[in-house]
Design a protein around this nucleic acid. Structure first.
Length: 454
RNA sequence: GUGAUUGUAGCUCAGUUGGUUAGAGCGCUGGUUUGUGGAUCCAGAGGUCGCCGGUUCGAGCCCGGUCUUUCACCCCA
């Protein structure tokens, strides 16, 4: 016998977990559909050439590669082998598991350019895989729920993303959260304004830790990364930033007055907020953070990140605008903006905050119990009749003690048991027992249907 | 990838400086009850102490390796 086990960083989902996951997924799906997004799916595996080089060196390391079928060592000489696995990767593996949903989507758009009508709004809910080291809120297999709209530069899309996030969080009962918003152009502008052009990457990595380690430590880190003392002094107005979206935009307009790019970023953000105002969407929960940076490699406009306050989980949603999604696949000039919910993290958050609804699993409504073969056969007739009326019913499938059948129903938290004994057979009725109250009464079929239908 | 950490029954965990036959609670199975679950009581089943190797007269305990768990960093959902 072998001991059963699961690969590192993967999980099973039991009935309760699935019910809860579906509760989250339904909230997300309903919202995506309400906003006109259409669902697509792509294969779990992609050609490795589609995936590599899209996520940086670190990302390539985290790709799960699939060994070629058949004799995967065929054609390799011992000389090849001595060069190590990296040198032979292209010969050993030509497929990999998808790392996110954005790159497969880009591939899909490029391949279906002639069939799609732009702007194209799609959503996609599928697992992705990363050969990361698992820890809290981090798994090697997890679901992403992406919504993207490609083929338009309209900032209405950005406004709608904020709207959708608000909608989903409201559905899930989450009240204390922050939608952090920024614009990549503002980051570029800030680097310009302090005289460190092109260094927004390291700048943000360091500044991002401001809350955690404080300004002094951040300065140390910036120094290590080759920033000038004078540049850092210029950052001060941004370190102790006023609160409030409008106030911050004013500060940035001033701060970036020499940087056309930066000002453009501010202007774009202002337009997003103007759209929201016109839509009647309040700006609470929305937080303009000029130092927010994400996936710098491909975002070019708006950047989003959502955090739930008071929980030990990282961001539960994020996204941004990119100018050129499909360029690497030979289709230039397709801009887009998208974002993603992390279901697994939302699950952990809702669990930590105890926000899952108490309601029972949508399981069986009534178990038909019996004492002997005769009762079981009488139960078959009831099973047909009840199911025909849409009552979720099951019949205990073998003859056994009533105690055992009641325990089974009790353990599954079924609300009712219908007892099929000699008395019921004689009267043509069903003894319906309420497992919560313990009360029971003998009912006819129409009476039972009224009682059990839910 | 770097540095820690964890692993004993289905689950949660005890297990003394290395010393006979590895324990508890919960759960499970059966009984107490041949038409009534959750409670009580009784009985029972269930373990290659993650795995491989080493030290020792003797290893759950010590050493090495490996896998796994959790955490921090990096990065990220």
């Amino acid at each position: 016998m072998q001991k059963p086990s699961l690969p590192k960083g993967t999980r099973d989902f039991g009935p309760l977990q699935m019910a809860r996951r579906n509760y989250i997924l339904d909230a997300i799906k309903d919202t995506f559909q309400l906003f006109g997004y259409q669902q697509i799916e792509t294969p779990s595996m992609e050609n490795l050439s589609t995936l590599t080089g899209k996520y940086g060196d670190e990302g390539d390391q985290l790709l799960f590669k699939i060994l070629n079928s058949g004799d995967f060592l065929k054609g390799l000489t011992s000389e090849d082998l001595s060069k190590g696995s990296a040198a032979n990767l292209t010969k050993l593996s030509e497929k990999g598991l998808r790392y996110d949903l954005t790159v497969p989507f880009a591939r899909y758009v490029a391949m279906n350019r002639n069939e799609l009508s732009f702007p194209f709004k799609r959503y996609q809910i599928q697992p992705v895989w990363r050969a990361d080291r698992p820890q809290k809120g981090r798994y090697r297999e997890f679901y992403q729920c992406d919504a993207d709209v490609v083929g338009t530069e309209s900032l209405l899309c950005e406004a709608e993303i904020i709207w959708m996030i608000r909608q989903v969080f409201a559905k899930l009962g989450l009240k204390d959260y922050a939608i952090k918003v920024n614009n990549r152009k503002i980051l570029t502008g800030i680097a310009e304004a302090i005289g460190e052009q092109g260094k927004e990457g390291p700048l943000c990595v360091a500044i991002d830790k401001l809350d955690k380690i404080g300004w002094e430590k951040v300065k140390e880190e910036l120094l290590q990364r080759g920033f000038e003392e004078a540049s850092m002094q210029k950052l001060l107005p941004l370190v102790n930033l006023a609160s409030g979206v409008k106030e911050r935009l004013a500060v940035l307009t001033q701060f970036l007055n020499q940087s056309p790019v930066g000002l453009q970023g501010v202007k774009e953000l202002e337009e997003v907020f103007r759209f929201l105002e016109q839509l009647g969407i309040p700006l609470d929960h929305v937080d303009f953070d000029p130092m927010l940076a994400r996936g710098l490699s491909y975002y070019t406009g708006a950047i989003f990140e959502v955090k739930v306050n008071g929980v030990s989980i990282g961001s539960v949603s994020g996204g941004g605008r990119y100018d050129n999604l499909t360029g690497v696949f030979g289709l230039p000039g397709v801009p887009g903006v998208g974002f993603s919910f992390g279901v697994d993290r939302l699950y952990d958050v809702l669990e930590e905050l105890n926000l899952f609804p108490e309601e029972r699993l949508a399981g069986t409504q009534v178990l038909l119990a019996h004492f002997d073969q005769k009762g079981l056969e009488y139960g078959l007739r009831w099973l047909t009749a009840l199911r025909a009326e849409g009552v979720r019913a099951e019949l205990y499938p073998e003859v056994s003690k009533l105690k055992k059948q009641l325990e089974y129903a009790s353990k599954k938290e079924l609300p009712f048991v219908g007892i099929c004994g000699d008395e019921e057979i004689a009267s043509g009725r069903l003894m319906v027992k309420n497992l919560t109250t313990g009360e029971q009464e003998s009912l006819t079929l129409p009476e039972a249907i009224v009682r059990l239908k839910k």
